[in-house]
Design a binder for these strands. Structure first.
Lengths: 226, 226
DNA sequence: AAGGTGGTTTGACCTCGATCAAATAAGAAT
DNA sequence: ATTCTTATTTGATCGAGGTCAAACCACCTT
C-alpha cells in the first residue's frame, strides 16, 4: 500500500459521485482538504471486523468487497463497492469499530476521509448530515433487498433480477458487460460459483446468452416472468 | 383503527426509548406536539410496499412486522419491531415511498410522526440528525446481520444465535420468555415454523429446554460451540 | 507452438430446509 | 371441565443448492 495525494482525475471522480455531487462546494473542499489516497493490490485486506476504524473510504478506482466471516472460515459477502461509492460509514456511529471485513477485489485506489472530521462537519452542515442519512439509507436498502431476494428467489431468479437491474426499462433486446468476474457476482448473490454457472445455463432457455463477461438478453419479458 | 392522543404512559414509553432518550427536551417536545396515536387489531396492514408514506412510526405497545412480498405471494420478513422502536424512516429519504409492507402482529398502539416535520427538525438540530443517523445505521446493521446469518449459519445455529442474543454474557444457566409466538420467530429467522421446531429439538441435545414460550439454557458454552 | 495458470463449467453426490399431511398440544370460550 | 380453535410438533418426501472432482477454456508467458 502506497499513499499519495489527490490528483485532478481523482477530484473528478469524487465530485461526480453520488455522495459529493450533492454537497455544497465549501463542505466538499473541507472534506477533501486532508484526504489521504492509498493504492492497493488485489486481495488486500483493508480492515477486519471489530477492529478500530477511524475513516470512511471512497473508491476512486477498482472494487472493494465487504464480508463477514463464519466460525468455520466461510465468507458471506455483504456488499460490493465499485468506483464512486463510499463505504465504512457505519463504524462512525458504532464506536469506530468495523462491523465487517473489507478486501479489495482488484487493484484499487481509495480516498480515506477522517471520520471525526466528517462527523463534525455533519453537525455544522445540514447538507452533509442529509447526504450521510441518504447514504446510510441506501446501504440499509441494499442489505434489505439482498435479504429479501435471498429469502424469496431461487438462484436463477436472483440472477435474472441482477440482469434486469442492469437493463434499462422498456428495452427488450439488450447486452452489457459484467463489471467483475463471475466469481464476484456469485458471492454478491450469495451463491457458489457453480450455482451461478448453472443459473446462467437455466436462463439460456429464457433468451439469455453469456459469452465471457458479456451478457445478452433477447427477451426481457421472459426474464421478468422467470 | 382509532386515533387518540398521547397519554402519560405513552409519553413514558417515548421518553424512555433509544431514539427519544438521547434528544434534547425541546426537540422531543417539538416532535410530540402533533403526534397522532392510532390503535390497531392484530394483522392490520399499516402500509404496503411502494405506497406513499409520510410518517414515521413509533411502537407504543404491541409488535409490528416489516416484510416483502414475492411474485408468488410468499412473504419474507425484513424486521420485527417491539415496543419502543421507531420504523418506517427510510421512506423519508426515498421519496416518501414505503420500501416494504408493514403489518401488526398483535394488538398495537402506534405514534405517527410527520416525516416532513422530523426532517426539518433534523436540519435545525444536530442532535436529531445524529439520532436519525444512528437509527438508520442500526437498521442497516440489523439487515446485514440477518443477511450474514442466513448465509453462514444453519437453522439450529441461527436459533442458537438468537437465544444467545437474549442471554447476558458470562452466565451459563439462564431462562427467558419469547416475546412473541414461535411463528413470528420463525419468520424473523427466515425459517418455516416446522424448521424452527426441529431446530429447537436439535438444540435440546445442547442443553436447551423449550416449554411453551419459555426457553431454558443449561450450558452456554455448548450453545456457543454449536 | 507449448505450457502454465486461474477462471468457469459440468457431473455426481449429499445435506439442509421447504412442503404437505397428520397428530398433538395449548389456549380461549362456553 | 368440555369443546372449539389455533399453535406447534412430527413424519415423510422432495428439490435447491453446496461440495468435491474433473474437464474445459481462455489468456498469458516463455
Amino acid at each position: 500500500m502506497k499513499t499519495l495525494r489527490l490528483n485532478s482525475n481523482d477530484r473528478a471522480v469524487l465530485l461526480g459521485s453520488c455522495f459529493f455531487g450533492k454537497l455544497p462546494m465549501a463542505a466538499t473542499n473541507a472534506i477533501l482538504e486532508d484526504v489521504v489516497v492509498s493504492t492497493h493490490e488485489e486481495h488486500d485486506i483493508l480492515f477486519g471486523q471489530g477492529e478500530p476504524l477511524d475513516h470512511v473510504f471512497f473508491v476512486l478506482s477498482g472494487l472493494v468487497r465487504l464480508y463477514r466471516l463464519g466460525k468455520d472460515g466461510r465468507e458471506a459477502d455483504i456488499a460490493v463497492f465499485p468506483r464512486g461509492e463510499l463505504f465504512g460509514e457505519s463504524a462512525m456511529f458504532l464506536g469506530n469499530r468495523a462491523t465487517a471485513n473489507a478486501q479489495t477485489i482488484e487493484t484499487t485506489m481509495l480516498a480515506r476521509i477522517d471520520s471525526r472530521k466528517l462527523r463534525k462537519l455533519a453537525e455544522q452542515t445540514p447538507e452533509v448530515a442529509d447526504a450521510l442519512m441518504l447514504l446510510l439509507c441506501r446501504h440499509a436498502q441494499m442489505a434489505e433487498d439482498c435479504l429479501a431476494e435471498d429469502r424469496l428467489l431461487t438462484a436463477p431468479q436472483r440472477v435474472a433480477s441482477y440482469i434486469l437491474g442492469n437493463c434499462p426499462d422498456g428495452i427488450t433486446n439488450f447486452s452489457f458487460r459484467l463489471p467483475f468476474q463471475k466469481n464476484v457476482l456469485a458471492g454478491k448473490l450469495g451463491l457458489a460459483p457453480e450455482a451461478l454457472s448453472r443459473a446462467f445455463s437455466a436462463l439460456r432457455r429464457s433468451g439469455v446468452t453469456v459469452k465471457g463477461r458479456v451478457i445478452e438478453i433477447h427477451d426481457r419479458q421472459a426474464l421478468e416472468r422467470f
